[in-house]
Simulated scan of single mutants.
Amino acid sequence: MFRLRTKFFIVPFLVSGCATTTVQYEEPTVGDIAKVRFVASGHHVGEAVVVGFDNSECENGKNRVSLFAKMHGNFTKSKRVGIPLWSYGDYAANAKEFLFEADKPHNFLIFKRPGGLGTSISCGSFISTSFEKDRNYEIDFDTNGCRAIVYEIQENDGDYSRVLALIGNTNISSMPNRCIREYNNRIGTKIPVKEPKLK
C-alpha cells in the first residue's frame, strides 16, 4: 500500500512556556478513507497532543497531531483535506484535518500540556471509534473540561451540521493498565493501576 508521509513542525517561540511536539503521521492514499478534523477548543493556552494506539489496550503509542488551543493564526499553514464547516482561517494552530482509514478501529489519547507559567493542569481523554467510508468527522477536545467529543458532519439539502457520535472516556482509572501507564507517563499523573484479579 502506498502512503503519503506528512510532517508538522510547530515553531517553539509561538507559545511561551510550551514544549512543542514534532508529529509524523502517514495518511492513506488508497482504499476506503474518511476525513477527520481535530480541534482544540477552550481557553487553555498551550499544546494539545493526539496520540494514536494500535489497539484499545494502548499498544505502540505514536503522536498523531499537535494543536494549540486559543490560537487561530501563526506562521504554519493550515492542514486541510476539505471537511465542511471550517471556520479557523488559513493559518490555524488549533485545527488540522487528516485522511484516516475507514471501517477499522482507531484509538486515541488526547491530552493537554500546561501552558504559560503552568497555571493550568494537564489532563486527557481516550477515544475508541471507527470512521465510515467517505464521511466527515470532527473530534473536538475541550481543553477547559478535558473532554473529547466526536461529531459526524452531516449534509441535509446542502446544509451541514455537527451530529454527536461519541464522547471520550475521562475516567482514566477504568482503562486497561497499559493505558493508565501511558497516561501517567505522558501527563505526569500517578493514577494507580488495577491489581490483577486472584483466581
Rank of each mutant, 00 (worst) to 15 (best):
L4R: 13
I127K: 13
N60H: 12
V15P: 00
A148T: 09
G46R: 06
N156I: 05
M71K: 09
S120G: 07
R147E: 12
N55C: 03
Q24N: 11
A34L: 00
G118A: 06
K112T: 03
A34H: 02
A48C: 11
N136A: 10
L4M: 12
S78T: 15
L85S: 05
T6P: 01
E155K: 03
G168K: 11
K199P: 08
R135C: 15
A48Y: 01
P176R: 01
F126I: 09
L166V: 08
S16E: 10
E59C: 10
I180P: 01
S161I: 07
A148M: 02
A34V: 01
G115M: 01
P176L: 13
I83G: 03
F13V: 11
I153C: 08
K197H: 00
S173M: 12
C179A: 05
G61A: 13
G89Q: 11
I187K: 03
I110D: 04
G42P: 07
N184I: 09
E101K: 08
A93W: 08
L164A: 02
T6Q: 14
V15E: 13
N60S: 10
F108R: 09
N55G: 06
L164E: 08
L67Q: 08
G42R: 10
P84C: 12
F108H: 12
F100L: 07
I191C: 01
N177F: 13
E138A: 14
Y25T: 05
L117A: 14
F38K: 04
S122E: 00
Y160T: 00
D54C: 12
C179K: 02
